[in-house]
């Protein structure tokens, strides 16, 4: 099993956000997680990646049979977890190129592979940059520095392409994108679907799922999955919205 989440409860500061979430993902599967604002969609990605302040209360998360919660943040990434952020941070003074090269080599090293030389890395970075339709000078700029919202999202997908993770969480990678940028992001993601790599696509809207077709769709409300189904469930949400869930407090009751 790629991912097994059992009865996950997690909190941010004093507030319990995830209240008994269960999810299993097999290699090669694409799962969409949809839900209203405040349901805990982003929290799931942050808990899995190990962000400070997002605390496991009970339950377990295993990736390829290993306990994710026992690992440091960087170790999770080295083991193949990748979170594409909704709001990627700007890091002036650290070039995108340097950042991605360090990252790729840290992960290669963890897999027991040779580090890439600067020239080798440049070659694959240029290809990835073209693939997400960013000008090559974005490699030289500071990480996300002065990038538009759409450029930041594409930069995340470029990292996804370069890092070749096993399990990818896309946290609202569609938010704030126009249709052209959305297609670039979706094409980038689809190019990485190889039958082994698994994806969790977190989104508020069905729109992204027109381009990245999921195997399963789950509705997350008030900290737990309240409904699961096939791609048709996303279309249902599109037409009915989330109102049928009632208020979040009631949904969990």
């Amino acid at each position: 099993m790629m991912l097994t989440i059992k009865d996950l409860h997690a909190r941010v500061e004093d507030k319990i956000i995830l209240k008994g979430l269960n999810l299993t993902v097999k290699p090669g599967e694409v799962h969409a997680i949809m839900g209203p604002n405040g349901a805990g969609k982003s929290t799931l990605g942050y808990v899995m990646s190990g962000r400070d302040g997002y605390e496991l209360v009970s339950g377990s998360i295993e990736m390829n049979g290993e306990d994710l919660m026992e690992m440091d943040i960087e170790e999770r990434a080295q083991q193949g977890l990748f979170l594409a952020f909704q709001y990627p941070v700007e890091i002036p003074g650290v070039s995108n190129m340097e950042f991605m090269k360090e990252s790729v080599n840290a992960i290669r090293k963890a897999r027991g592979e040779e580090a890439l030389t600067a020239a080798e890395f440049l070659k694959i970075a240029k290809e990835a940059c073209k693939q997400v339709n960013l000008p090559l000078d974005f490699l030289k700029r500071g990480v996300n520095e002065g990038f538009s919202g759409g450029e930041k999202k594409r930069n995340e997908i470029m990292q996804l392409i370069l890092l070749k993770p096993k399990l990818v969480i896309l946290d609202e990678s569609d938010s704030g994108l126009d249709i052209d940028a959305l297609k670039v992001v979706a094409d980038g993601v689809n190019s990485q679907r190889d039958g082994k790599r698994s994806f969790i696509v977190v989104t508020h809207y069905q729109r992204l799922l027109d381009f990245i077709e999921p195997d399963y769709v789950h509705i997350l409300a008030d900290g737990k999955i309240v409904k699961s189904g096939g791609p048709e469930l996303a279309k249902e949400v599109e037409s009915t919205g989330y109102a049928w869930l009632g208020k979040p407090e009631e949904a969990g009751a």
Binding site: E74, R76, A77, V94, E102, S103, A106
Partner: peptide, 17 residues
């Protein structure tokens, strides 16, 4: 956190930052 989440070791991330 962003750098760690990309697999970069803490010590190296601090140097870069």
């Amino acid at each position: 956190y962003y750098m760690l989440s990309r697999g970069i070791k803490r010590e190296q991330a601090l140097v870069m930052l």
